[in-house]
């Protein structure tokens, strides 16, 4: 799984019927070792009610369909957790409390 920040919401009216009801978010992947941006923004199905600015955990590939909400949907990326704290090598890379 990867760490990512929710940077926006994606709205599509005309879409695969199996995407109806799924909230789609634009997420910017973050390097979990450094806390810096890594790669290009991606579209992810949100299964946990994340909001703009939240740091989240994303899961990719066929694993993204292993949730109740995405089980039969054509998705390859899902938000499956809202991150509270990340610690790497004894350093706090991210702390949700400090951001709000």
């Amino acid at each position: 799984m990867q760490m990512a920040r929710v940077v926006g919401t994606v709205v599509a009216t005309q879409k695969d019927p199996k995407l109806v009801g799924l909230k789609l978010q634009l997420v910017q992947p973050i390097d979990i070792g450094t806390g810096t941006e890594s790669g290009k923004p991606l579209v992810a199905a949100d299964t946990v009610g994340a909001g703009s600015g939240d740091m989240v955990m994303i899961v990719g590939g066929s694993s993204a369909r292993q949730t109740d909400q995405t089980a039969s949907s054509p998705v390859d990326m899902a938000i499956v957790g809202i991150i509270d704290v990340v610690e790497v090598e004894g350093r706090t890379i991210y702390d949700r409390k400090r951001e709000n």
Partner: peptide, 23 residues
């Protein structure tokens, strides 16, 4: 294993699963 991640809000099936940062 170099660290860990804590998520309070998460998919129900991730409940009780430890999330580790891996190099």
């Amino acid at each position: 294993v170099v660290g860990n991640v804590v998520c309070t809000a998460k998919d129900a099936n991730l409940e009780g699963v430890k999330l580790m940062v891996v190099q």
